[in-house]
């Protein structure tokens, strides 16, 4: 089985890092993974996106036309990519910045106020971790406990940030369950 997640948003929203943490989690769980970034001058200030491919077999094409899931952190990303997600996938919409919806009824739409949640726990920069936690809780694409450990590992060089990000993980998970 192979699954793919596309992360998209503004440069600076932690898009590439979210993808990396998911890839690391999947790897630690024993899956094959590939993290494929968009790179170049558009990284500065423009849109950034990356795709994470997770599989229980060696991965063929890392280039994906239709990802299984989408985490859209800003409006242009949702507008651009909502249509290419495979049916039954999860589309996470960062409602703090996106006033519209995917317009699809064959996918699982997950609406999360990532900025508000992050600012409640003390730092809006944790919005990407809130989103990632919500997404993982809903899609169950990887094991949530392993994911928690990976977030800790990611911030091991800045231990001060760990408690904040652990809160982000928990609040994100809650948001996935209480979404209507």
């Amino acid at each position: 089985m192979q699954s793919e997640v596309m992360f998209a948003g503004f440069g600076g929203q932690g898009i590439l890092l979210s993808g990396k943490i998911l890839a690391q989690t999947a790897m630690d769980q024993g899956f094959e993974v590939a993290w494929v970034p968009s790179y170049g001058p558009e990284m500065r200030g423009g849109t950034a996106y990356c795709t994470v491919v997770i599989s229980d077999e060696p991965i063929g094409s890392p280039i994906i036309k239709n990802p299984a899931h989408l985490v859209a952190m800003n409006r242009p990303s949702l507008e651009k990519f909502a249509g290419i997600v495979k049916p039954k996938g999860v589309i996470l919409i960062n409602a703090s910045l996106i006033p519209i919806r995917s317009g699809r009824d064959d996918i699982d739409e997950l609406i999360v106020q990532t900025t508000e949640i992050a600012s409640e726990i003390g730092n809006i920069r944790a919005a990407n971790i809130v989103a990632l936690a919500s997404f993982i809780a809903r899609s169950r694409i990887v094991d949530f406990d392993i994911f928690r450990e990976c977030v800790k590992k990611e911030f091991s060089k800045k231990p001060k940030l760990i408690p904040l990000n652990m809160k982000a993980v928990d609040k994100g998970k809650l948001a996935a369950n209480f979404d209507v």
């Binding site: 890839a23 094959e32 993974v33 590939a34 993290w35 494929v36 970034p37 790179y39 890392p62 280039i63």
Partner: peptide, 10 residues
């Protein structure tokens, strides 16, 4: 190719 340099894999 550029992807081999930019991609992350185990």
């Amino acid at each position: 190719d550029g992807l081999i340099g930019q991609m992350m894999e185990p």
